[in-house]
Design a protein around this nucleic acid. Structure first.
Lengths: 217, 217
DNA sequence: ATAGCTGGCAAACACTTGTGCTGTCAAGTG
DNA sequence: CACTTGACAGCACAAGTGTTTGCCAGCTAT
C-alpha cells in the first residue's frame, strides 16, 4: 500500500517521525531512535527506508555522520529549536458537530505552529486549534476564518469564551459562557445574534479560548 | 580577555562556530568538528568550554547524544533558511512616533515567529510586526496588545488597513485608509473615535496590515 | 516453475563521538 | 612557598551509530 506521494506507509511514518523528533529535540534522530520508537525490528530496515526516502528527495543525508539526517528546507517547518505546535482539530461553527478532542488521534492531526511569543511550551499542554466558521464572535474580535487556540478544560468562569458542546443537539459552538442560577447562557459576541439558554446538564465545556491567529493575506 | 557576555574569546568562537555549522549543514557539530576546525588541540578542551557555555546558558546539551548541542531559541535569531520570522519593530499607537522601518537594523531586531499557516515564506518578504497599543482598531478585530503583521508598501487602496505616518505630526498610526478627492481620511475602526482628515502630502503609507496574532493567556 | 524484484529481519562490524581520567602550566592567594 | 583555580593537552575507553552482509517471504513477469 502506498500513499499519494509514492511512499510506503512505513516511509511516511518515518518521515513524520523525523520531523516531529526535530521539533521536539532540536536535533535530528539517529537510526536507532527511529527504530525503537517506531518499533521497527532492525536498524537495517530503517536504513533501507531512509535510502528510499533519500532517493525520492524527501530527506537529505550525510553519510557516516551521526544524526546527519536533514529535511530539505522546503519541507522543514522551522529549523530552529523545539517549536510549539498544536493539533488543528477541525472547524467550529454555530451548528456543526465537532469531533470530540479526546478521541482524535492527536499524533496524526494537522498541526498549527504557535508563535513562541504567544505562549511558552508548558502553557500549551492540552491546547488545540480550531478554525472558526461564521461571525458569531465578531464582537470578541474573532472573525470567520480565524484560528482559535483552545485549552481543554471542563469548567469555565462567567465571561470565558469557550467551546461548548450542547449534548441534546450534539453540536459544538463557540460562545461566551455565563452561569445564571441553574441555567446557562451561551452568548454570541455579536449584537445581531441571540444567546442560547439551556440547562447545565445539557452543556459540556470542551475548552477555553486562549489565543487567536488571523491571516489577512 | 573576556567579551561583554562574560565569555572567553575561545568560547565566543565556539558559539559562533556552532551557529555557523548548523546554518551550513543543517545539523549540529560534534565535539571533534569543533576541535579540528577551530584548531583546538584536544577534545577535552572543547568539552571544557562547552560545559562553561552550558553553565552560562548559551547552549543546551543532550548528554551522551551525538551532535546533541543545540542553541536556545532565544539565541538563534535567524539560523537557516525560510524560518518564518519577522522583526518586531516596536509599538504602534495613536500618537507615538515609530522608528522608520527602513532604518532599523533588521538583523538585530527582536523577532516574531509567524505560523506557517498564516503565510508562506515568500509572502513574508518585507513584512514586519508591530505591537498594538490602544483600541482604535477595535471594530476591525484588533485589540490592545495584539501583534499585527505589516507588509511594507507605499501605496494603499481604499479601505486597506495601514500603518500611516503623518509627516507634520511626525507620528505613525494604525488606521483604515480612504482617499477622498485630494484629501485623505484615516478612519479608526472604533465608533467612538473620529477620523483624521489630512492632505495626501502629509501622509506617508508605511505598510499594510496582513495578519493579526493575539494571545489570551 | 524460475528468476528477479521489493520489503523485511538479525547480527556483526567498524567508524563516530562523548566522557573520563591524568597531567601541565600560569596566575592568583594567603 | 604551598595551595587553589582556570584553561589546556593527550589519550584511551565506552557508548552511540551508520553500514554491511546474509537470509527469508511474498510478488510479478518471463
Amino acid at each position: 500500500m502506498r500513499t499519494a506521494d509514492g511512499l510506503s506507509v512505513r516511509q511516511e511514518k518515518i518521515l513524520r517521525y523525523i520531523e516531529e523528533f526535530f521539533s521536539k529535540h532540536g536535533y535530528w534522530p539517529a537510526i536507532r531512535d527511529i527504530q525503537s520508537d517506531l518499533k521497527i525490528s532492525s536498524t537495517s530496515v530503517v536504513a533501507y527506508n531512509l535510502k528510499a526516502l533519500q532517493d525520492k528527495g524527501k530527506i537529505n543525508r550525510q553519510g557516516k555522520v551521526s544524526r546527519g539526517i536533514t529535511l530539505p528546507t522546503s519541507m522543514s517547518p522551522t529549523l530552529i529549536g523545539p517549536t510549539h505546535r498544536v493539533p488543528l482539530l477541525g472547524t467550529i461553527t454555530a451548528g456543526q458537530p465537532l469531533p470530540d478532542p479526546e478521541q482524535v488521534d492527536l499524533a496524526s492531526a494537522e498541526k498549527v505552529e504557535v508563535p513562541q511569543d504567544l505562549a511558552s511550551a508548558d502553557k500549551l499542554k492540552g491546547v488545540y486549534a480550531l478554525k472558526v466558521r461564521g461571525q458569531s464572535m465578531i464582537d470578541a474580535l474573532i472573525d470567520d476564518g480565524d484560528i482559535v487556540l483552545v485549552r481543554r478544560q471542563e469548567t469555565a468562569n462567567n465571561g470565558d469564551m469557550v467551546a461548548a458542546m450542547l449534548v441534546e443537539e450534539n453540536s459544538v459552538t463557540l460562545k461566551k459562557f455565563y452561569q445564571e442560577g441553574s441555567r446557562i447562557r451561551l452568548q454570541p459576541a455579536n449584537r445581531t445574534m441571540q444567546p442560547i439558554y439551556t440547562t447545565s446538564e445539557n452543556v459540556r465545556i470542551q475548552g477555553r479560548v486562549v489565543g487567536v491567529l488571523r491571516s489577512l493575506f
